[in-house]
Design a binder for these strands. Sequence first.
DNA 1: AACGCGGGGAT
DNA 2: ATCCCAGCGTT
Length: 342
Amino acid sequence: MSLLSQPEAFQQALADWYAIAQRPLPWRTAPSLYKTVVSELMAQQTQIKTMLPYFDRWLKRFPDFQALADAPSEDVLKHWEGLGYYSRARNLHKLAQEYVALDPKPSIAKEWQALPGIGPYTSAAISSIAQNFPAAVVDGNVVRILARLTNDARAFKNNGEAVKAFTPTADAVLNTKTPGDHNQAMMELGATVCQKGNPLCTVCPVVQFCASAAQGTTEGIPNIQRKAIVQVQIDRLWIVHDGKLLLHRIADDARQLAGQYELPATTHFATKPKLGKALATKSRGITNKRIKETIYPLKPSSLSSQPSELHWIALDQLDRITLSGPHRRWTKELLKAHSAAS
DNA sequence: AACGCGGGGAT
DNA sequence: ATCCCAGCGTT
């Protein structure tokens, strides 16, 4: 059996599997265009499992395009807090405002792509899933599946190059009768069976079409180069006084974490504060950085000056502001220890 | 074409 | 510790 000579047989095997194996996701049980749009924006570079609680909260607070369009932006950002890639939230907000004013509404992939936050992948996903438009999605899952099905061991410089390379194949195997289910089935297969490590070929519904399975080369495909990881060290301060915590507010026009709060770093002060024994050391990875952050306790009396971007936030008001994800978590941890100690 | 953007799940 | 995730916008 060959993928490209018998695309209909491949499509059928995939569809039969998807009908029984698909996960019950909240945007599948009672589908709507709005749910499709929200889920696709949230799913960009984010695992489905990670976004599920965010999706539910979002739908409760912003049940439709109009409610989202009317919401204040602080509210929108607050509901995205912790999910990362915050431009997605700003784009989704703008998208809702543009969408409610649009007439006629977008109905094909190219029209969706004109809206903010919608690129080639998301336009194909929305139009195929919600509007039965025949556009093939090419995400990380689809790249992996197609590279393996065709036993393509080429080395790609980055993910974008691989996406481009497999787009013609994705178009060629698309089931144009049921493009939405076909696209979701491809991604579902990649997420649950054709995984990066330990692919479950013995239960794969399309293994008979898979050239890499026949050759035993599946696990090493696709071959995509990665960027070097950069190590970063940041010293931060834990300054509590009179029931308030000193936090740094990132500028609204910053490229990174705009408008969000974080624990102040020593670099935020004109003269580096004198540090004692560390309160905690945290390590995390983001994109191509490995960040080590050491948090030092400091008495406010030892501060020489206070830059304007630093703000005292009452401890019982912390839930009202948006902190970057890890800093929200650490703040909660340290407050717990702080109250236990006092 | 290359780069920056977050945070977390899985191994 | 490392890879990668239902990618996009900017440079």
